[in-house]
Amino acid sequence: MHPETSPLDVADDALDDDVPRDLSARPVGSDRVFVGVTRGVGVLVFVIVTAIGLFLGLQSAPTFAHYGFSFLTESRWLPSQDIIGIASVALGTVQVAIIALVLAIPLALGTALFITDWSPEKWRAGLTSAVDLMAAVPGIVFGLWVLLLVQPHATHVTHWISKHFGWIPFLEVHTDVDYPIWNQAPGYPSYAGSAAIAAIAVAAMIFPMATSVMREVFAQAPAGEKEAALALGGTRWAVVRNVVLPFGKSGIIGGSMLALGRALGETISVVLVINQAFELKIRALESGTSTISALIATGYKEASPAQLSALLTAGFLLFVVTLVVNTLAAGVVARARSGAVSEL
């Protein structure tokens, strides 16, 4: 902006006239409309979204006024007697989510590693697409698949586990385990519709998300270090163990947590598979459990206004827990993506 001393012979008074141009840009009409409209919509969406959040949050006031603290500790859900509480569904939610993680994360880890480090170069785009496509498969389809196809096979496995590891409280089933499964009443009532079987459907739902986060981080593992490990005579596993996995650790953790956030809210596949029961129990292989989202999906109809507030409060709690998990996960993944690439 400042005029340099010019080699030309310029009159001094001409320079004196040269004042800096006023740079304040007054927006033209179209810009004012553009900024106004987008800001208006942005604020509108902000208001709507905040109102929803506040509405859900404020429902906890009537809920706790009506049911008191026992809303959190009561495990039964008896709308007709107005005895309701979310202890058992909260436990069920955590159980289903954790079992789903146990099933899905090793598979996601293996698949992500396979895509980045084992598969031939030309398969990679296709495999990545396939994982993305799986993310678009509706939950109801996986629910149907588990209910009709997987459950009859999976109950054999859960029966075997409960028979041999039933001394672990978590894996116990209150039934006569020595009774062969094909000899039990139709539909293996003691094993069907358990938290573990519902978790299979949830695992199918969360697998793609975990895989794509892990794959993205693994793909950024520094090529120089990988080549260095290979040049030192390392096998592929040595490369993965010493370069890719340490580099992608936060991707694994972040991806798993994002998957956990998704698993907590998964509704319809769980509703379809479980035998709903409001019982505080940790026996994950035994028939009968419930989750918060399944409770909402099935309990809204016969709810009185107070019970509706209670359901909204339960939904709000689920939302807050998911939000916390997602936020932590986003932080972890962002750290992974910010590139801790070591220089070579």
Binding site: V49, I52, G53, L264, S293, L318, F319, T322
Partner: peptide, 22 residues
């Protein structure tokens, strides 16, 4: 607005349904 929207993506879909129902 961006942070609020990001937070809202965490809302389970069944809760959105329950909100409209209520």
């Amino acid at each position: 607005v961006r942070s609020v929207i990001e937070a809202m993506t965490a809302m389970p879909s069944v809760v959105a349904g329950l909100f409209i129902y209520t």
